[in-house]
Nucleic acid binder design. Structure first.
Lengths: 113, 113
DNA sequence: TTGACATATTCCCATATAGGCATGTATTGT
DNA sequence: ACAATACATGCCTATATGGGAATATGTCAA
């Protein structure tokens, strides 16, 4: 079996740096495809393909206005990622405390035990 | 060009569900490979390969003890993901407000700046 | 040394890209 | 209808898997 499809979920979709750039850009305000092409200096077909992936996993929404398609980031679809990473927050916080304790011990400031 | 390597960064590494499971499991406490195999019901070579990827991007640390290799999640390496997703927090918060607020303005969507 | 145990690596294969290029489609203006 | 604009999709290729099976490596015990 090969790697999971980028359209399988948000985790796979945001693994691509270009797509994260697009999401960042479209979070500020909705934009037509041409704006993304200009702003991020990517090929138009490439942008369209990335948008397709992002749309398939619900990370962006699209709206047609005449010849243009306006896309915007659907931040809500990023919440699962945020929540998953958040479960590790207490662990790195714990690690920071450890580093701090060690530093204090080395400086002989407050020796425990 | 193909997709970026899973070892290119943490974003690519955690795109795989099995690897996220491993990270969750190893966050609680360090474990030898065999425990992961039993707990997550994966093939041993598969676990070793995933651990290799996770180690290459710094998401886990390893320590040998006799014949066993103890792995543990390095939560700190997950912070960049947490921070990236966090930049969207205010947007989904904003979207929640919008749901209540059905007011609609239709213009000024795309202006080049 | 020999054998057993715990992991790691290699090989093979089907699959899923992502980029470049060409082309198709939808919409508007004349 | 025809041309132009704005996107979307198709095709091709090099590449990077991830799973399974087999094998290699490392460590300890007798």
């Amino acid at each position: 079996m090969a790697r999971a499809a980028t359209t399988s979920d948000a985790f796979n979709a945001v693994a691509e740096p270009r797509r994260r750039e697009i999401l960042n850009y479209l979070a500020l305000q909705e934009r037509p495809v041409g704006d993304i092409v200009d702003a991020l200096e990517m090929e138009q077909p490439s942008v369209s393909k990335h948008l397709r992936v992002l749309k398939d996993v619900g990370l962006v929404r699209a709206r047609r206005e005449g010849r243009q398609m306006f896309y915007r980031t659907n931040a809500d679809a990023i919440r699962p990622l945020h929540e998953w990473t958040e479960t590790f927050e207490r662990y790195w916080r714990h690690q920071l405390l450890k580093v701090k304790d060690q530093a204090e011990e080395k400086s002989g400031a407050s020796k425990k035990e």
